[in-house]
Amino acid sequence: MNNSNKRSWRDDFAFGILKGNPVLVLMIGLCPTLAVSVTLFNAVGMSIAVAFVLIGSNLMVSAIRKFTPSELRIPIFIIVICTFVTIADYLLKAYSPTLSQKLGVFVPLIVVNCIIIGRAEAFAYTNTVFSSLLDGIGGSIGFFLVISVIALIREFFGNGGIGEKIILNKPALIMILPPGGFITIGTLMGLMNYWNRRKKTRMSTN
């Protein structure tokens, strides 16, 4: 609780985007990132679903944190997350059946997505509702940016273009196969580490 007083609300919001980017820095939620980032359409759909669940569960967990017994907190988190995932799943099925069909099992699997339970445990459980809301929004934006960039790269090189537009005649098939996902994500992680490290050395020399 003391931590939240020192940090400004900007830090809570920005943490999930760059410094604590769920996929590239914290390396959580890699499984859905790899599986769903084959096309941009799927990636955007997935990040909307994750954003809904992450913000909802962060709000709920921080709202009930004062009377959540710590030995029972994980099952309680899971129940909270399950509720939001079920809502998201049915909303998708009702309003966007194609997207729901394409994402398939990965929507129900948001329940066990490390990003959501990780933020609930590491942040929302010990912080105020407002900070948790900001953290959830920041994390969602971070996840959205990363998965969209990965999907953009993979779909462009692996499929030859975005959506219906095909630019490359002979696309590199590997990019829409699992190895392409690993290569893209590894390269982005390397760039992110380089960027963060350079920022750190610059700050220490100043």
């Binding site: 098939l173 590997i174 190895p179």
Partner: peptide
């Protein structure tokens, strides 16, 4: 190995 995965026909 990457080429085989990318352009299996060629």
């Amino acid at each position: 190995a990457v080429l085989v995965a990318c352009w299996p026909v060629e």
